[in-house]
Write a protein that binds this DNA or RNA. Sequence first.
RNA 1: GGCGGGAUAGCUCAGUUGGCUAGAGCACACGGUUCAUACCCGUGGUGUCAAGGGUUCAAAUCCCUUUCCCGCUACCA
Length: 658
Amino acid sequence: MEDKKTYYLTTAIAYTSGKPHIGNTYEAVLADSIVRFKRQQGYDVRFQTGTDEHGQKIEIKSEEAGVTPKQFVDDVSGKIKSIWDLMNTSYDKFIRTTDDYHEKQVQKIFKKLYEQGDIYKGYYEGMYCTPCESFFTSSQLVDGKCPDCGRECQPAKEEAYFLKLSKYTDRLIEHINTHPEFIQPESRKNEMMNNFLLPGLQDLCVSRTSFKWGIPVDFDEGHVVYVWIDALSNYITGLGFDVDGNNALESGTDLFEKFWPADLHLIGKDILRFHTIYWPIMLMALNLPLPKQVFGHPWLLQGEGKMSKSKGNVIYADDLVEVFGVDAVRYFVLHEMPFENDGIITWELMVERMNSELANTLGNLVNRTISMTNKYLDGIAEDKGIAEPVDEELKSLVLSVPQKVIDKMSYLHVSDAITEVFTIFKRCNKYIDETEPWVLGKQEDKKDRLSTVLYNLIESITIGASLLEAFMPETTEKILAQLNTEKRALDNMTSFGGYVSGTKVTDKPEILFMRLDVKEILAKADEISTAQAEAAECNKEENIIDIDEKPQITFEDFEKLQFQVGEIIACEEVKKSKKLLCSQVKIGSTTKQIVSGIKQYYSAEEMVGKKVMVLVNLKPAKLAGVLSEGMLLCAEDADGNLALVAPEKDMPAGAEIC
RNA sequence: GGCGGGAUAGCUCAGUUGGCUAGAGCACACGGUUCAUACCCGUGGUGUCAAGGGUUCAAAUCCCUUUCCCGCUACCA
């Protein structure tokens, strides 16, 4: 049996709380372009993607929708899968965290880690600073006290399971230092090191009791496995991994044995921490090898302001595909995303790219080449060998591109790789200008030269189109079909002239990419936007916010709190702080200084004169070096927007709130 | 507040270990061409390389200071 090198790539699994927008879709397309290229390079590839389907948010959403959580995620997961299919992503495995084999293994993993002591049942036995609401490992404490506020830390009481991280920290640091390619882009490595690894990790809470929709901890009723052990494990359970070593086989093959460790976890930069710290530690605890590389890709952002469904400006892949076609959308997201910085997508930019690169440079090139071949040569371009110096320039450029593309792709610089391919098409257009086939066509004695010129063009386009396959598979197929030839293999691009001389091209060239009118497209985008906003309106997600429930308190507990109306008589910004305002608050005959993190929502000037609700008897603390003697109460919505709470009628400063 | 990364043409960015008149794409303007989807080709830059100082024969590049942006993180009683 041929011993091909394997390549295992995974994307993050998409959370099934709603339809994925173009930014989520980008990840799947990026992954797809990478694996398609690896296949071209001859690797035995496995590409896994899927959906993450547990958690409180889904429990709540399904309840609102009046269906069971399973029904809810079945629906959303199906939608996500259909968008991945629409985008032509060639995944080998679509895993769902509600799949039974996955759930079973997660339970076994959890149990194994528990039995060997890597997971322990805690009662927040770590050092907990109540005022700071934070946990600290003992190594983080300063003189046994909270490193932030310097106060005593105590154990807290809530019951939960924790993954012990400290045991493996040194090994992980060592691994990251000796494997510079492990975290990509490399700049993220410092962030992980400096913010988490070097200061010391606090143990990760891996179970919850506050909701039910999750994988139960089978030896402790009431606990469900919280997100990370559940979600991250998909990368191995999807290969049929079994904790006891009885890996499930797929058509006789032990996929886990064959494909693990993964070559690349492709994820968004926001979850890099989980993939480069918690996941490796889980794997170490399971005594499994670590993935070779984790790439936290940047985001594809939407241009016009913050996206929101109610504004109707969320861009979805299926809307784009309807207007532009699959490959145009693939081209756009891949090309517009640099390696490290966020990219931007708008309808205008889409049209611009579509017109200038796809329609003009590529589409028109194919079209004019085929048209001339038909017009002057009855569709048959033979290599008559009538060469001129300019031909060599074309050939050497074309033949230099494959290696450049391979290099760019090996560093995952997909955008640059596509740009390289397009240099072929640009050179071809120039070549046409240089050789002027329409002039040759008028001279009977130049027929052979003309034929050679068109042959060179067709050969160049064949190579270019073949190189495009990873990025725009349908376009590759369409071009090659029009040229009536086969896809050229990557290792077969070292010499010029593979196109079978004398082949007849199609006599009915089809437009590959239609030029679009920006105004028309924007009008269409407007329609989509309006429809979206209307849908959001009638489907109005009731603005209900659920937060974690706290334990019941007694009236005595409540009586300990002293609330009064306070009048803000002066207010200024706290220098050196992004969020803090420092207010002088009149409460009865005294004045307290209170610092609040509301600068984003209130200016210092507008604060003055407000009468607000104040928690008066809170122990004073220093914030950013400024003393704060109480708390201004605020309401907070799901996006973190704040609104001060004030008495409904005018009340004097100092009035008790009870 | 801590750590890190930036600031180069109207826009998006390249610029390797300091080294010739600082580059590319887009956009714009003009010229050429007509096979093609009004397309393609060519030509066109007075840029304080954020500001100031320093090292050097030589600085966009190295060092210091300042300003402004961004990322992660902490804080946000």
